[in-house]
Amino acid sequence: MMALIISIGAAAVVYAVSILYAAIGEIFSQRAGIMNLGIEGIMLMGAVSGFLTVYHTNSLALAMLAVICTGAILGLVFAFLTVTLQSDQTVCGMAFLIFGSGLSGFIGKKVTGIATAVKFHDISIPLLHKIPVIGKIFFQQDLLVYCMYIIIPLSIFYIYKTRPGLILRALGENPAALDTAGIHVFALRYAYVIFGCAMIAISGACITLSYTNFWNEGMTGGKGWIAFSLVAFSRWNPGFAALGALLFGGISILGINLQIYLPGIPTQFYSMLPYAATVVALIITTGSFRKQHTAEPAALCQKYDREGR
């Protein structure tokens, strides 16, 4: 029983991290007022670019560099469309979703299904991994997971305790006020969208370089959308996003495990669990029956046009 809990817990952490990079990237992007609906496509591009680099060079460092560059380039284009050209953000996101899934399938076709020897391997952290249960769940993971342990507190600190963080929050609430104060709204939005896309691409890399060691078309299977709904679920707070990601991770891993113990129910119904859970979580956290003030950035999805009135 203990072994089962540990294996479920550890797998849930890996799952959580693979959506958390994207969720935190999206939190930054949305806090800056730009909603990026193309997560799934950008994740796929990150996943395929990382995998192709590892396949050809056997170097994880180069792969991560390629992933971040891919994300940044896509972010630049997305920012150009949404910030400079002020296009509809939903439609842009859809375009990126379709473009990303098409292009990733196209360039990754030749390496589909081939496994690489190089991937992020688990490292045990001295001392900490000896803590019963928790040690095995949290401290016998790979580098991408440990990086996330640092990113979560850092991003919370950045958003809520620093001056740039304050500006970031204002960027999504009232960009006109910032502009009046002499802060370059457009440049900052570009920066945060690019950062967000790079993070989303890393999320994709988690899937091909850590979760598995192969590439398959459309292998993110809706994880990008789960990350997207996690943002609203977490009330735009990376800390809550981490808890939410663990919850989603737990539900989907539990689904896979229940399949073994309760084979009477067809597998497809277990696979529905994370999607159904996402809808339920979305209803609970963003439904207008809640009395609480919504945490949604007021300027989210709004065009910012200096000449507009």
Partner: peptide
């Protein structure tokens, strides 16, 4: 969900895609 509770329809309809396709999958394999 959209009309009564103002739930974001983008995410809901997309999640429902996955659920519907899995259900179809179940019927056609089962």
């Amino acid at each position: 969900l959209k009309a009564y509770w103002k739930i974001n329809e983008t995410i809901v309809t997309l999640m429902f895609n996955y659920i519907a396709l899995l259900f179809l999958d179940y019927l056609c394999y089962g």
